[in-house]
Amino acid sequence: MRDLISEDLENKKGLVVDGAMATELEKHGVETNNDLWSATALIKNPEAITAVHKSYFQSGADIAITNTYQANVKKFEELGLSEEKSKNLIVQAVKLAQKARADYFDALPKAERQKRAPHPLVAGSVGPYGAYLADGSEYRGDYDLTQTQYQDFHRQRMQLLDSAGVDLFAFETQPNFEEAKALVDLLVKEFPEQHAWLSFSIKDTETLCDGTSLFEAVHYFDEVKQLSAIGVNCTTLENIEETVKNIRSVTDKNIIVYPNNGDIYDPNTKTWQNNPQADTFSDLVPKWLEAGADLIGGCCRTTPEDIQQVSEIVNC
């Protein structure tokens, strides 16, 4: 049971995670303002997904996150797809990321591949139950299922991602402590050869969206060996430095952060407002590294240009 994240960090001060998928897919003409969000492209334009993944590798990303955050068999079936087709779409999402990695990495000259080490990873995105609801619940965490119900919801997607060959799982934008516990329990009991990172959705620098103390949540998972990293994503740039310090105060695990780009989101209309006054990744990444972050990327509205900024600082 290899911890690829920790192995890759042995000779680097940090790893670079990729950026937003939906923002880039929109540039390819994919409409994402619907219940499937970026997963729409799995049906409408899979080639665009490969192109987006490749653009992030070219910008210096060490890890690609599969386009499965809002993709699950139940939602696909609700939209009229067969079970077989729905399963195939999730497997396809992994294959598209793997193809982008191969197209990029294998085309590099040998010297460049050695310089580019470690070999890029593909993380299988496991979004929260709130993403399936498609009503902004991933920013509230105000839903209440049993552990069995959470696990029954997540199991099939994790099985498909695992069978398709992801290097690890990305439990991301998790707003609900009980759901996070159910996910990690499922990881340990049913996927003993896999690792994952766990990235919370937070209300503020000390609190998960459901009101749970961030300190309590991080401490709870501190001894789970299959968790390669703990952190936050899909929050503001301004939240990151203090949040990293808070996480570091209760764990020695690797810390992962991938915030939004500074634009302002309305979860009711699912629209964004540009914020030209937002700080840049170049301004903030050095502070995050100093605070204790180990893996840094971008979430909503971030671009390959943002990830290139991260890469230049992490690899300088």
Rank of each mutant, 00 (worst) to 15 (best):
E47I: 06
I43F: 06
E112L: 14
D142W: 03
E78F: 01
Q114S: 14
T148R: 14
F105H: 02
A71M: 01
L89D: 08
A134Q: 05
A64D: 09
Y139G: 04
D62K: 14
E112M: 13
A100E: 01
A134N: 12
A117W: 12
Q70L: 00
T50H: 09
Q147H: 02
K44E: 14
Y143N: 08
A100P: 02
I49V: 14
D106Y: 14
A41C: 03
T148P: 01
S82G: 13
K95S: 09
Y132D: 02
H53K: 08
R140M: 07
H119S: 12
I65K: 05
R157M: 01
G141Q: 03
A71Y: 00
Q58W: 07
A131C: 08
A48H: 07
H53V: 07
Y132F: 15
Y143P: 00
K44R: 11
S137L: 05
L145A: 08
S59W: 07
H119Y: 13
R157D: 04
A97Q: 02
H154I: 05
L133F: 09
G60R: 12
S137F: 02
K99P: 01
E138L: 08
S59A: 15
V126W: 13
K54R: 14
G60V: 10
F153T: 02
V73D: 06
L79A: 12
R157S: 08
E78L: 10
E47W: 10
Q151F: 11
A134W: 09
A64L: 15
L89E: 11
H119P: 01
A93P: 04
Y150N: 07
N67H: 08
N88H: 09
D106E: 15
G130E: 10
Y143D: 06
K85P: 00
K54W: 00
A100Q: 04
D152L: 13
E77T: 13
I63Q: 07
T68E: 01
A41S: 09
Y132V: 05
S55I: 10
R113D: 12
G127Q: 02
Y139V: 08
A111K: 13
K75E: 05
Y143H: 07
H154R: 04
S55G: 06
Q151K: 09
K54F: 00
E77N: 12
T40K: 15
V52H: 00
A64Q: 10
I49D: 06
R113E: 15
N45I: 00
Y104E: 10
A93Q: 07
S55P: 05
A111T: 12
K110Q: 12
E78A: 11
D106W: 09
E77S: 01
L89W: 12
D144T: 15
K54T: 08
L96W: 02
E84I: 11
S55Q: 15
V94F: 10
I90A: 07
A48F: 05
A134D: 03
A71K: 05
K44G: 05
M158A: 11
Y143F: 13
V126I: 11
S137G: 01
Q114I: 13
L81P: 01
N72E: 03
D135G: 11
K85S: 14
G127C: 07
Y150K: 05
T40D: 03
N88Y: 01
D142F: 01
L145W: 02
G127W: 01
A131F: 04
L145K: 15
K87M: 11
